[in-house]
């Protein structure tokens, strides 16, 4: 049950190995609403906290396709329909000459969707987040590794969850206020 005023329990570890091991233990114990925080990307950690579908490639593909189609259609419309000019007898629809701008627009749109898509899917910018209420969390961007069980987890209980996290032998445990 979700307890008013609590966002979850947070355990602190001092190595990526112990964090990944703890994340696996938490999954095996049946917790589903969990997350982990680390100062650098750790291979396999996202999967260990139950993250399996990364939508980023699809976002970037769609962005790139839109960019490419926009680029080519823009040139076609401008050079063939809106204001056709005969330049040295070249056809209005001189497609080989249009490839470069099409290519650049593909890259531009795909790149912008990669950045904006990553930020949007991650819910950033988010200036306030309950995890920042834990003073030791400032070390999550330096040399400490954190695991959190959210209070929204159906299996969450303020006593059981705390006891379970203690069994993982973390450096410290903190209750995260909401």
């Amino acid at each position: 049950m979700r307890r008013a005023g609590t966002y979850g329990f947070m355990a602190e570890f001092d190595s990526p190995t112990s964090l990944v091991a703890a994340a696996h233990r938490v999954q095996q114990a049946g917790y589903r609403k969990v997350d982990a925080y680390s100062p650098f990307p750790i291979e396999g950690l996202a999967e260990a906290v139950g993250f399996h579908r990364d939508e980023m490639p699809l976002v970037v593909l769609i962005g790139g396709l839109i960019g490419g189609i926009t680029g080519y259609a823009m040139q076609y419309w401008m050079s063939v329909i809106s204001y056709p000019i005969n330049v040295g007898g070249k056809p209005y629809h001189s497609w080989p000459a249009f490839i470069i701008v099409t290519f650049e627009m593909t890259i531009l749109f795909a790149g912008i969707s990669a950045v904006l898509g990553m930020l949007a899917l991650n819910g950033l910018p988010m200036p306030y987040h309950p995890v920042f209420n834990v003073p030791r969390f400032a070390f999550a961007t330096k040399d400490r590794f954190f695991l959190i069980v959210f209070s929204s987890d159906p299996k969450y209980s303020s006593i059981e969850t705390r006891r379970f996290l203690e069994s993982l032998s973390p450096r410290s445990i903190a209750e995260v206020p909401d």
């Binding site: 994340a23 997350d35 982990a36 925080y37 680390s38 100062p39 650098f40 990307p41 750790i42 950690l45 996202a46 260990a48 906290v49 993250f51 990364d54 939508e55 980023m56 490639p57 970037v60 795909a110 990669a114 950045v115 898509g117 990553m118 930020l119 899917l121 991650n122 950033l124 910018p125 988010m126 200036p127 306030y128 987040h129 995890v131 920042f132 969390f137 999550a140 961007t141």
Partner: peptide
Amino acid sequence: MGWRGSARHWHRYETAYLL
């Protein structure tokens, strides 16, 4: 922008960076 190093964020971040 409120970066907190969540494992899910890192995963998307690395994919975006690689792409």
